[in-house]
Amino acid sequence: MKENNKYIVFYSAEKDGFLKSYKDKGNLVFRATFDERLWEALQLPFEPYEKQKTELDKLAEVMGCEVLIVEAEYNVTKLDGSGFERTEREESMKDGIKALLDFLAK
């Protein structure tokens, strides 16, 4: 099974790292942590980024970062090297009850 994903990450050339975390400290003060390893970076799927582009671009600017697109391809196989495909699971009684409760809660 092959899967392709597109993510957004923030990169700081000054820190030579990807944004790993940030915390609002109140009063317009925040703390940002950077890591050189891409897999440690905060990631956002591309589609939600497009919906919030203006706000996220401003956040990146405040943090001194540039916005990067990361395209990742995953090849998933079983341990014996054979192909893996997701299978559709049958709906269980538990799923039906949960759906009914969700419907009634609305």
Rank of each mutant, 00 (worst) to 15 (best):
E3W: 08
N4I: 00
N5S: 12
N5K: 11
N5I: 06
N5F: 15
N5H: 12
K6R: 11
Y7N: 10
Y7A: 05
I8R: 05
V9G: 09
V9Y: 05
F10L: 13
F10R: 01
Y11D: 08
Y11G: 08
S12M: 12
S12H: 09
E14L: 10
E14T: 05
D16Q: 15
D16I: 06
D16H: 14
G17T: 10
F18H: 04
L19Q: 04
L19E: 09
K20F: 15
K20S: 11
K20R: 10
Y22G: 04
Y22L: 06
Y22W: 15
Y22P: 02
K23N: 13
G26D: 08
N27Q: 07
L28D: 11
V29N: 13
V29I: 10
F30Q: 06
F30I: 00
F30C: 03
R31K: 13
A32S: 14
A32Q: 05
A32W: 07
T33G: 02
F34S: 01
F34I: 00
F34H: 03
F34W: 05
D35A: 10
E36Q: 12
L38D: 07
L38M: 14
W39A: 01
W39D: 12
A41C: 06
L42Q: 10
L42N: 05
L42I: 05
P45L: 08
F46Y: 13
F46C: 00
E47P: 00
E47R: 02
E47N: 02
P48V: 04
P48D: 07
P48K: 03
Y49T: 04
Y49W: 09
E50T: 10
K51T: 12
K51H: 13
K51A: 15
K51M: 14
Q52Y: 06
T54F: 09
L56T: 00
D57Q: 06
D57Y: 02
K58R: 07
L59W: 11
A60H: 11
V62C: 04
V62M: 10
G64F: 05
C65P: 02
C65L: 09
C65I: 05
C65K: 04
E66Y: 13
E66G: 11
V67E: 08
L68K: 14
L68C: 09
L68D: 06
V70F: 09
A72D: 15
A72T: 15
E73I: 05
E73Y: 12
E73A: 09
Y74E: 08
N75S: 10
N75Y: 10
N75H: 08
N75K: 04
V76G: 02
V76L: 15
V76S: 12
T77P: 00
D80S: 09
D80P: 07
S82T: 15
F84G: 11
R86H: 07
R86P: 04
E88Y: 04
E88C: 01
E88P: 00
R89L: 12
E90K: 02
E90N: 03
E91V: 02
E91R: 02
E91P: 00
S92W: 14
S92Y: 13
K94W: 11
K94C: 03
D95F: 06
D95L: 05
G96A: 11
G96C: 09
G96I: 06
G96F: 07
I97W: 11
I97L: 15
K98D: 13
A99D: 13
A99F: 10
L100K: 10
L100V: 03
L101C: 12
L101K: 14
D102F: 05
D102I: 02
D102K: 09
F103I: 00
F103P: 00
F103C: 01
